[in-house]
């Protein structure tokens, strides 16, 4: 099956390369991006107090969601294009033809809603931390500590968002509603991933 992901240099459906070549190309972007997520997580106050098992579990569950937020700007809703890591732009129509389908549409929708909130860098950073600690907690050793960390970060985010634009009272709620959207995207992405085996 042809697969396209913005973290590839080029969509796999177009190049005629082997699965191994596609994987190597993807890995060149993917590995550093995941490392950046881990570094980001290490700087979230309280994250490193969690057990290593829970840190790994949270990162495994939340990395895609964090990357989706970080790379939301790759999706240009106005132009209906996606910019891949090679800086090449592909139209929505081309990408549909490469098997991105519903996931692509949902990513566009998410990016549009996030962009409409016009978050400052500080707000985006704190929101991204909330995204990570709000990831699925299946298999956690100490879910209560993660929940406590999540509550602390959400309180800080609420204070920051209200301070930035006190007149827009619904902005924080709209932002929090992005969390279930990200969970849905994560599930759609997992389904795609399961159809692409790397042996």
């Amino acid at each position: 099956l042809p697969q396209a992901c913005p973290m590839n240099s080029h969509p796999a459906g177009r190049s005629g390369r082997s699965v191994q070549e596609i994987w190597e190309d993807f890995s060149l972007s993917f590995t550093p991006a995941v490392r950046e997520v881990v570094e980001f997580a290490k700087h979230i106050p309280g994250f490193q107090a969690l057990s290593q098992h829970d840190q790994v579990t949270l990162l495994k569950a939340g990395t895609f969601e964090v990357l989706m937020v970080r790379f939301a700007s790759l999706f240009n809703v106005k132009e209906q294009t996606v910019t891949f890591m090679s800086r090449t732009k592909y139209s929505l129509e081309e990408l549909w033809g490469m098997g991105m389908g519903d996931l692509l549409s949902s990513m566009f929708e998410f990016s549009e809603k996030l962009s409409a909130l016009q978050l400052s860098d500080e707000e985006l950073g704190l929101f991204t931390a909330v995204v990570l600690v709000s990831a699925d907690r299946s298999g956690m050793e100490d879910a209560a500590s993660v929940e406590q960390l999540q509550e602390t970060l959400i309180r800080a985010l609420r204070a920051l968002v209200q301070k930035t634009r006190p007149a827009e009272s619904s902005r924080f709620t709209k932002l929090l509603l992005k969390l279930p959207d990200l969970r849905t995207l994560n599930n759609l992405h997992s389904e795609k991933l399961l159809s692409f085996r790397i042996d």
Binding site: V34, K42, V56, L59, K60, R197
Partner: peptide, 27 residues
């Protein structure tokens, strides 16, 4: 169902990054 994350070697990258092992190019 397999764990989708294991398809990407995600856990391995995360564990190495958490331990500060940024020099390993094996992925």
């Amino acid at each position: 169902f397999a764990d989708p994350a294991s398809n990407l070697g995600l856990e391995d990258i995360i564990r190495k990054a958490l331990m500060g092992n940024f020099d390993d190019k094996s992925e």
